[in-house]
Structures are given as C-alpha cells and as structure tokens.
Design a protein around this nucleic acid. Structure first.
Lengths: 107, 107
DNA sequence: TATATAGTTAGATAACTATCTAAATATCTA
DNA sequence: TAGATATTTAGATAGTTATCTAACTATATA
C-alpha cells in the first residue's frame, strides 16, 4: 500500500522536481510554486500526493506551510528497488497490508 | 523520459510482482501468467510497460517469449532515488531528454 | 474587526491507464 | 499445409489522475 503511493508519487516529473528542491532546503508551498508553471491548486495536489506517500512532511509556520523532505522513506524506497532486483523473498515494504491487488501467495 | 517510464512501471503492484518472479528466474509470458488472475492481454500490457522502461528484456525462444529482468536499470533507479535524497544537482537519469514537463532551469 | 496573503478544497474536464473480449501473428508439429 | 499453442494487437469501457477556476479556511496585521 505504501509502495503504491511512493512509486506513484515518484512517477511524476513535477513531484520529482519538488523533491529535488526540498532536498536543497525545506521551504513553503509558495516558494516551491515560484519554480513551476502550474497553478497553486495543482501544486497543492502534488504536495498532497508526496505527503500521502510520506515522502514529505508539512508543518505550518504562521501563514506559510513549510514542506520538508523525508529522506528515510526515500532510503526505504531505494532499498526496496534493490531488494526487488535481488529476488529477495520478502522485500521489507511489500507487507501483508498491501492487499490492493491479486497475486500469487508464494510471492 | 526514462524516469517517467521506470517509475510508472514500478507504480503498479502486478508489475512489481512480475519483477519479483523474474528476479528468481527468467521465464515466459505464459509462465508468468500462471501466477496472476488477470487475462493474458492484460499481462502482455504490463510486460510491455516493463519492456518500455527497459526493466525487462524479451527474447523469443520457439513459441515462447522469455522475459528477463534488467538489473542494471533497477540499480540505476535505486541510485536515482538516493541522488534525489541527497539533493544532487544533476541526478544521472534526469537528463535534458526529459522534456516532457515544464520546470525551473536551475534544477 | 476588516483586509490581505498563503494555502487548500470543490467541482468540472481532458488525458491516461487497466482491463476485458475478439482477432491477428508467430511458431511448432503432425 | 492444417491445427494447436503462445503471445500480441485492436477496440471498447471503466476508473484514475492532472489540470484549471472559483470558493473556502487560516493566519497576520493595520
């Protein structure tokens, strides 16, 4: 379930660019918006996708909402990709909670 | 452009399961199909997505088409995720070919 | 308290994706 | 070459996602 959100979040170029910016420094939605041509609601939608995937954390600071990258989830994601590659029987993140698809029980 | 395909390919649970199976051993579309409840055309569609992302390679062997996982692309993908995390200015895979979205030139 | 600023939520729409059945292509074997 | 098997392609449909404008909520400040 988490994988689902994480990879989907990463599967969008705008969201990857947001992560790049946040990796340089935590900043507000407005600061981020200045770098993109999409509307603020669209950006908010992207930030929400990243938040759902737990790839970023949000924290209000006065009028602003400051977004911060969550590196540990990115680490987990990279690890998961490597585990996939190594044919590990039970990659960490593909838990029994991930019931949103039908698959072979031996996986 | 490649990122686009790679993350989108990974953003589907069936496709991730296909990769897990192929990590254990290369096998035909039919062998893979036995593990899933979706129709063969659907599976073919998923295999094509993986192929486009260069995450798998296909090779006909008589009547069968044998699919093989491409571990180097998975390595690159994991590396890209880590580079994102480290705020590297120019992660390998986000090349100038990736023109499918509008973004800040400083990225 | 009224106004301005920052950001999100709602609702509509266009584009994309997963899925299916049916039909086509490729290969093998009798 | 005819029939069987493996897989893909075509075409239709349902569900999901990205985007926009308009409206709403929250905070700050005069």
């Amino acid at each position: 379930m988490q994988n689902q959100h994480r990879f989907k979040a990463l599967a969008d170029p705008t969201r990857r660019d947001i992560l790049k910016l946040l990796a340089q420094r935590s900043q507000s939605a407005g600061d981020l918006a200045a770098h993109f041509e999409v509307s603020k609601p669209s950006l908010s939608h992207h930030l929400n996708a990243l938040k759902q995937a737990d790839l970023v954390r949000a924290q209000r600071q006065g009028q602003n909402i400051i977004y911060t990258i969550n590196t540990s989830v990115l680490e987990d994601t990279a690890r998961f990709v490597l585990d996939l590659m190594n044919g590990d029987e039970n990659p960490q993140m593909e838990t029994s909670h991930d019931k949103d698809h039908k698959f072979d029980p031996t996986l």
